[in-house]
Amino acid sequence: MSITDQLLAALLVYGLWLLFAVIAIASIGVPFPVTLMLVVAGSFVEQGEMKLWEVIAVASGAAVLGDQIGYGLARWRGRKVALAVARKFGESGIAKAEEFTRRWGGAGIFLSRWLVTWLGPWLNVTSGMARYPWRRFLFWDVLGEVLWVALYVMLGKIFSDRVQELMDLLGNLGWVNLGVFVAAVLGWKTVQYLRSQRSVVS
């Protein structure tokens, strides 16, 4: 069985406790298939085995807790560690990350909670390192995580008898989501190269 299947089987047995633990760990940065677990939890809600408000409260609480740990650690020690690493690999990366956080701020935090979720743990760290105001971080974090949890739990609830197919579909859409973002960055780089070559050729 894949790790996804094992986690889903464990979710059936251990319920909300497991959901809380896995989502909190994933929010710190461990890549667990938590979106799929939310979909399955939504199906259990529809079958009467879990309560909707409990799932939303537990999953949102876990996600916010994990995000706060990532933010807190980065704010506490992140900059020192990053600077030590950057001395070996160049400091421009840190400056870029901090600039990214300052520019995108609340919108970036909010969107990375539910739309481009794979960016979430990274933004927690850069927000902490850049000392993004904690209250604002918490506000956008809670808003985004509750939306993320409610969205996927409701999807699972609506398509409660087709969870496996919904998960396969979401799995592919997740890769499309990541691929579009990376292709956009690489495409933009290529256009910049072509522009710089234009001045050389002409």
Partner: peptide, 23 residues
């Protein structure tokens, strides 16, 4: 960078196709 762009685009296209086919 150009090669990575083409590879990622092909990968994304493949998964988009699979998503549509699944749907």
């Amino acid at each position: 960078v150009v090669a990575a762009f083409l590879l990622v685009s092909a990968f994304t296209g493949l998964h988009a196709f699979r998503a549509v086919r699944n749907a």
